[in-house]
């Protein structure tokens, strides 16, 4: 597998980015996150994006899909895009007509199972990719909405299937975290050109330069870690890599808040949605219990 996306695919991601910009004009608010995202889902389906990873085939390079998931992470639309992308890729039949939002459930250390987005109406929890079984849609309970762009709910049972598909989805979620971090990085830079203190733009202070350099370093490494996750040999390695990517992404997001000063600490600016998204990915990874996975 090539470690860099193809030029053609990079062009496609630009188009994808434009679509997502139109679907999530922002600024984000709790009301926005609570709205049903039917229109967005339809647009994704009509644009062919849900099958970008191949339907029932694994032809498309995973490196390219990471790029797509990263762009997705730059926009916070509360839908299981990465999970669907992954499940469609691993699905048994190649003619999946409905393409509803799909998610997967993982066993947790406590013995229960959780699934991102499983509380949202219309989202189906896939329990066996090979047999195409799904649990009833939207039945997840006790959702953790720490990050409204990625709620995580409790479900009755965990999905079963080849471990590779869980590895793929870990890589894609990691890439989402990288996307969220990229947004934080870009916003910090933009702010550093606008905001002044002591008759200087803050972006000219060396302390801010050095923070930005660290942010950039962590962003680049996070991206490389997501690539590692995509190439991991087993679930344990995928989790190590995914966790590394998410931790580095969080490091970018938290530095971005520091660059913003007081406004960075507010609910109003909106940066916190990204930080929370990254933290939700991190905690999703943390909850996946390898021990229970092995028992299945």
């Amino acid at each position: 597998m090539s470690l860099i996306p193809s030029i053609e695919f990079l062009d496609a991601t630009k188009e994808f980015n434009r679509l997502l910009e139109s679907l999530s004009p922002g600024p984000y608010s709790e009301e926005w996150f609570a709205q049903p995202q039917t229109e967005a889902w339809n647009a994704l389906r009509e644009g062919g994006w849900l099958l970008a990873g191949g339907a029932g085939s694994r032809d498309e390079e995973l490196t390219n899909l990471l790029e797509l998931a990263e762009v997705w992470g730059q926009h916070l639309i509360p839908l299981p895009f990465s999970a669907t992308l992954c499940l469609m890729r691993w699905a048994n039949s190649s003619d999946q007509p409905s393409v509803s939002p799909l998610t997967l459930a993982v066993p947790t250390a406590g013995g229960s199972a959780i699934a991102p987005f499983a509380n949202i109406r219309g989202v189906e929890v896939v329990c066996d990719v090979e047999l195409g079984l799904t649990l009833s849609a939207g039945k997840g309970t006790s959702p953790d909405i720490f990050a409204p762009s990625m709620p995580i709910a409790v479900v009755d049972r965990a999905s079963i299937g080849p471990q590779e598909w869980l590895c793929t989805s870990i890589a894609l979620f990691a890439a989402e975290a990288v996307g969220a971090a990229r947004q934080c990085h870009n916003r910090a830079l933009a702010y550093s050109f606008e905001r002044s203190a002591y008759q200087q733009v803050i972006g000219s202070f060396q302390a801010i330069h050095h923070m930005a350099a660290n942010m950039y370093r962590d962003l680049e490494l996070a991206k490389s870690a997501s690539l590692w996750a995509a190439n991991a040999g087993d679930l344990e390695e995928a989790l190590r890599a995914g966790t590394m990517a998410a931790e580095l992404a969080r490091s970018v997001a938290q530095k971005s808040i520091q660059v913003h000063g007081g406004i960075g600490f507010t609910w109003e600016l909106g940066l916190h949605w990204y930080l929370r998204h990254v933290m939700a990915v991190e905690s999703f990874f943390r909850h996946i219990s390898l021990e229970h996975m092995r028992e299945m």
């Binding site: 830079l189 733009v201 972006g203 202070f205 060396q206 330069h209 930005a212 350099a213 660290n214 950039y216």
Partner: peptide, 14 residues
């Protein structure tokens, strides 16, 4: 870090 800030990120000098 100075080089990353000014050459890669194109941040302004003081």
């Amino acid at each position: 870090r100075n080089v990353i800030a000014t050459s890669v990120l194109k941040m302004p000098r003081f």
